[in-house]
C-alpha cells in the first residue's frame, strides 16, 4: 500500500455540504487508486515516523495528554481495546498477552512492556501517554452524563487547530461552538451528539473530515499556531509548482466507538496527508478537489482556514 493507494479520498460529489456522515466501521472502500477502511487502526509505511513524531510532540508539550481522574477506567479500556486491535491487525509484529500482569510486544518499535491494568504507574506515561507512542491515531475519550458528552481525556498530537488542553472538561456542544453557523443551522452537531449518546456498547462507526494544510506537518494545534499559520498564509501568493509540492489535502479518518467495559465513547482520529502533486496521479481527484473548492461557501472556507490559498489551488486543479 502506498500513500496514494490507501488514501481515504473524502469528496463524493462536486459540491461539499456538512452532513452527519457516519457509516459503520470496518467496511473496505474501493477508491480510484486502491482501498481503505477494512480495519479500525491500520499501521502503514508511515507508522514508525508518525509514532516517533507523536512521542516528540508530547515530550515537548505534556499537555497534549489529558486525563481527568474519573476517566481512568475509560483510559485503560481504550488502551486494551486499541492494543488488541493493533495486535489483530499486525500479528507478525505485535502481541498482547492479557492476565493479572499483561505483556505488550511491538517489534516495529522494539518495545516489550509489562503492565498491570488499572495501575497507572506500571506504564511509562500512564495508559494514554503510552498509547500515544504506539498508535498513529489521536485519541479522545468522551464521558457520558447529564444527557451530554464531555471531552474528559485524550492524547492528541496532531490536532487541526484545536487544543485538547483547553477543551478538556468541556461539553461536546461547547467544544464545537466555533463551528460555522450553517452547520449549527442544519442541526448536524445536535444530531451527531444524539447519535453518539445512543451508541450501544461495542458499536463502531466512522466518518471523514477534510481541509488543506501545508507540507507534511501534522501538529497544527492551537498551542503552536504561530509556527504553522503564517506558512499557510504565505502560500496564497505561491507559484503553481510550489503549490503542487506544498499544499496537501488533509483528511481525518475519524472512528467513533462505544467502549464496552467503561461505557465511554472513543473518538479516534487518523490524519492522512496527500500533496496536490501526489493527488494529481488520479485526474478525477484533482478535478473534484478543484470543483469542490471553487463551489465552497465563503464561511466554510474561512472556517477551514482556506480562504487565502483557495484561488491558487482552484486554478492548479482546474486549469490544464
Amino acid at each position: 500500500m502506498t500513500r496514494l493507494s490507501r488514501f481515504p479520498f473524502p469528496l463524493a460529489a462536486d459540491t461539499f455540504t456538512y452532513t452527519t456522515n457516519v457509516e459503520p466501521a470496518r467496511v473496505p472502500v474501493a477508491t480510484a487508486a486502491g482501498e481503505w477502511g477494512a480495519g479500525i487502526v491500520e499501521p502503514d509505511d508511515e507508522y514508525r515516523t508518525e509514532v516517533a513524531e507523536r512521542a516528540a510532540v508530547v515530550a515537548r508539550d505534556p499537555s497534549r495528554v489529558q486525563l481527568l481522574p474519573h476517566m481512568r477506567p475509560a483510559a485503560w479500556d481504550a488502551l486494551l481495546t486499541l492494543l488488541r486491535e493493533l495486535a489483530a491487525q499486525c500479528p507478525a509484529h505485535m502481541a498482547l498477552v492479557e492476565g493479572p500482569q499483561c505483556l505488550w510486544r511491538n517489534d516495529l518499535l522494539g518495545v516489550e512492556q509489562r503492565f498491570t491494568v488499572g495501575d497507572d504507574e506500571s506504564l511509562p506515561g500512564g495508559p494514554l501517554g503510552f498509547l500515544n507512542g504506539q498508535l498513529q491515531e489521536d485519541v479522545v475519550l468522551l464521558d457520558q452524563r447529564e444527557d451530554a458528552l464531555w471531552v474528559d481525556a485524550g492524547a492528541v498530537a496532531f490536532a487541526a487547530d484545536w487544543s485538547l488542553a483547553f477543551v478538556t472538561g468541556m461539553r461536546f456542544a461547547e467544544v464545537h461552538r466555533p463551528v460555522v453557523a450553517r452547520v449549527h443551522q442544519a442541526g448536524v452537531l445536535t444530531r451527531a451528539e444524539q447519535f453518539l449518546l445512543r451508541l450501544p456498547p461495542g458499536a463502531e462507526y466512522r466518518r471523514l473530515n477534510w481541509t488543506l494544510s501545508v507540507d507534511r506537518r501534522l501538529d497544527l494545534s492551537t498551542e503552536v499556531r504561530e509556527e504553522w499559520e503564517p506558512q499557510r498564509a504565505a502560500l496564497a501568493a505561491a507559484a503553481p509548482a510550489e503549490l503542487g509540492r506544498r499544499v496537501h489535502l488533509r483528511v481525518e479518518l475519524q472512528h467513533l466507538i462505544r467502549l464496552g467495559a467503561s461505557g465511554a465513547v472513543l473518538f479516534l482520529i487518523r490524519t492522512h496527508l496527500l500533496s496536490l502533486d501526489e493527488l494529481a496521479a488520479v485526474p478525477a481527484w484533482r478535478r473534484r478537489v478543484g470543483r469542490v473548492l471553487a463551489a465552497l461557501p465563503d464561511d466554510v472556507a474561512d472556517y477551514k482556514g482556506l480562504s487565502g490559498v483557495r484561488p491558487g489551488v482552484v486554478r492548479w486543479c482546474l486549469e490544464p
Partner: peptide
C-alpha cells in the same frame, strides 16, 4: 468564543 467552565476562561490564541 470558546469558553471553558473548567478553566473559567475564554481561549486566546496567536
Amino acid at each position: 468564543d470558546h469558553v471553558s467552565t473548567v478553566h473559567g476562561a475564554h481561549l486566546g490564541s496567536w
